[in-house]
Structure formats: structure tokens, C-alpha cells
Design a protein around this nucleic acid. Structure first.
Lengths: 210, 210
DNA sequence: CCTGAAAGCATAGCGATGCTATGTATTCTG
DNA sequence: CAGAATACATAGCATCGCTATGCTTTCAGG
């Protein structure tokens, strides 16, 4: 009844946009399609508008993040897992700093919030396991501690991705998360070991601990 | 020798830009000067380019932040002062969320880094006083702890200013800073009191503790 | 098998963008 | 009190995101 839409074109445009972002090239409607063989109208067929492209790019960023977080294997030590998730979060932000910036720029909307919530759920479940295991106090609210861990990760990732802090600053996550988990009731020396092991599972490239 | 440049025009344009930002109106060259009586060329006389205007707007944001931080009166309790500085930081971000976003968007540059460093110095000095007062361990590196405090503040401020978290989330700063300062060696119950008092000095409007 | 309709998508052109070239007005300097 | 340098208004440029138009492709119904 009609010409079929080619999903490969959609991926092509998204990948090219991400690549141009990484190369610090301005991503405009015309520069995006230049050299791809497709015309500017393709962007409107697949994304509706240029804004739709950015939205899709944010979704792509959240998808990559979710994949990265899902790749973290859970262990019998939930505190270790929390640190490993934090390390994976920072690794992802360091590997795709431009995508990370797009994810949290002014255009954040409802669908993005859903994607963010989904990524947060892994943290919440790890906190719950830590409570069950007796590592955290009973009065710890999982969602709150998960949100606080997220704020630490995002604070560091954002300051590094936007420029004010050097990559090395991501290492601050280790003492900061340790402090947070100890305040949640974990035994200090045991916590330090757990966080250290978790961090080593997916440490951001080129960031070594002091 | 030449027609004199009127500083009032510069302020007018900056204020108007900040106001349009708050009102969620698009800030473009033509909409910015519309109704002001000045022409588009004025923007190039005072800021060199539209990018220069954004840079000046970032500086304005850092200046407001520095003013807000400078207004925090230091006390005999350096940990209280650290919390008060954190509260002032978050108050500023909550009052000017759009300006805060502009401050830390992709255009961050060297001069901005200087302005940020200057604002951080107050934190560093407070950490040093806390060490002198015996509240923090000797092995605490002031710049590192100050940076970590900043990361907490920025993480929360950024997540609130860009949308993912509600204003209430700023209250997380209290337990997070408390955990950080305790990990630096402060006595737990004393730390909780100090942070509580510091927070009350400049609490972000409409954010109450749980 | 056609054939008609619906969707993909290339071309061209719209208003609005940031910016610059040019001319005029203004004001401090020697 | 001239002369020159600076401020700034006007107009026009390339490029931006977007849309109107029409050609092309592909599948459904007879």
C-alpha cells in the first residue's frame, strides 16, 4: 500500500548524530544528512522534527546507560554491587560525555524521566538487598539512598562532562559513596572493602584511585 | 575621541536576557533587543557576539553565586559554616534555575573556571578551619573535601534545575553532607547538629527537611 | 496481473537566525 | 575648534529548522 520505512536509515542518522557530537561538529539538519545520500525530509519522516531527533538521542543515551548497568553482575555483596553500579554509571558518562550532556540538558521530559527511573531501579533493589543483608539500618529508605547515590554520580559526571573538573575527579566517587553507605549503617572497614571491590569491576578508563 | 559606551545598556541587555530566560522565552538576537530602543549592533558592541552574551550571562551567574556565598557569615563552628555555604549554593540554584543551567552548560570555559574556583575557595577555607579546630582528620585534603561537597551540591542542583528531581530533593543535601563530614572525622552527633544549624541559616525556599 | 492509493522522500522555498558591511552620528582629544 | 575614533542604526548575507509540492515506490483489491 505504501513504500516501507527503512529502520537502517533511522540508526544511521542517530549514529551519525552521536558521532558528530563526539567530534564537536555542529549537528544541524543539513550537516546531519550531508554525505549520507538521504535528504533532509528523512529526518522528519523518522523523528518528526529536529527536536524529535534530540529526544531520540536522549533515549539512545539512556538505553546505553541501562545496557551498561545491566551488564554489571550482581553478587552476594549488595554494597559492592552499589559501588559497581556507580562505577558503571561513571564509565558510561566518561565514554560518551557529549551524549551524557544531551541526556540531562534543558530538554528533559516525561519519557526521559521514565528511562531514568528504570535505570534507578537497579540501585533501589541493591539498597533493598543491603537492608535485607543487615548492612544498612532498617530506617533507610531505599529510594532516598538510591537517589543520593545518583546525585553523587551525576554531580561528578556532570562536572567532568561539562568541563570544570578533570577526569581524575571521578575517583572522588569512591570515598563519597563509602561515606554515604557508612552513614546508612554499614560497617566502615567492611564498607571500604566492598566499595573498593565494586569500583574495580567497571572503573572509568584512565581514572586511578589516589 | 569617540562616543562613550553606556554601561547601563550592557546591564539592560543582561538583565533582559536573564528575565527572558526565567520566562522561558527564546533568547535570540532580535527578540533580545526588541522594545529596548537599542539595535542589534549594540549586542556586538558590548558582547562581541551572541556567544559573548552567554559568556557574560555565565559570569553574571557566578557573580550572583559569589555574592550569595559571601553573605554567609562565618561562625566559630566551621562545619556549620560548610553546611551554610552548601545551603546558600542550593538556594541560589533554586532561585535562578535557568541561570544555573547556563552556568554549567556545554560552553564552560577558562574564565568560568576561574569564577568557579573563586567560589570554591570559601569552601576550602572552611575545611581548613575545620581541620585546625580538630573537627576533621589531619589527612583530609581541603581541596578534595571541598570538591566533594561541591559535587554533592551540583549533583542535586543540576538534577533539580534540569527537571528529573523535584525541589524537595534538595533536602538530601543535609544527610549527604553530614555523611561526608563524618567520614572526614567529625563526631557524628555533633556533626548532625552543626549541619542542621548551618542549613537553617540559608535554607532553599520551600524545601523542608523530612 | 494490473491499477490506484498511500507512504517515502527529493527539491525548492519560507521566515527567522547570527553576523557583517556600510554609512551616519556623536564625543573626546590635541 | 577641528579631526578622528568610536557607537550604533540599517540593510543584506549565509544558514538555520521547517513545510509545501510533486515524483517515486510499494502494497492491496479486483
Amino acid at each position: 500500500m505504501a513504500r516501507t520505512r527503512d529502520p537502517a536509515v533511522r540508526s544511521l542518522l542517530l549514529d551519525r548524530a552521536a558521532q558528530m557530537l563526539r567530534a564537536r561538529e555542529p549537528v544541524t539538519l543539513r550537516t546531519l544528512v550531508a554525505g549520507t545520500g538521504v535528504s533532509t525530509m528523512a529526518v522528519y519522516t523518522y523523528f518528526g522534527s529536529m527536536d524529535g531527533l534530540w529526544k531520540a538521542l536522549r533515549q539512545e543515551g539512556f538505553t546505553r546507560l541501562a545496557t551498561k548497568l545491566a551488564a554489571v553482575s550482581m553478587s552476594a555483596d549488595p554494597v559492592r554491587d552499589l559501588a559497581a553500579l556507580g562505577a558503571a554509571y561513571l564509565s558510561n558518562a566518561l565514554e560518551n560525555p557529549d551524549l551524557y550532556r544531551v541526556m540531562f540538558d534543558a530538554g528533559f521530559e516525561l519519557e526521559d524521566a521514565d528511562a531514568a527511573d528504570e535505570a534507578l531501579h537497579g540501585l533501589v533493589r541493591a539498597v533493598e538487598r543491603a537492608k535485607t543483608a543487615g548492612r544498612f539500618r532498617d530506617d533507610v529508605v531505599p529510594l532516598e539512598l538510591a537517589t543520593q547515590s545518583w546525585a553523587i554520580g551525576h554531580g561528578l559526571a556532570s562536572l567532568v562532562a561539562t568541563g570544570p573538573l578533570p577526569h581524575q575527579a571521578l575517583a572522588h566517587a569512591v570515598p563519597m559513596l563509602t561515606a554515604l553507605f557508612i552513614s546508612a549503617g554499614d560497617d566502615p572497614s567492611r564498607c571500604r572493602r566492598s566499595v573498593g571491590h565494586g569500583w574495580e569491576q567497571t572503573p572509568p578508563a584512565g581514572v586511578r584511585l589516589s
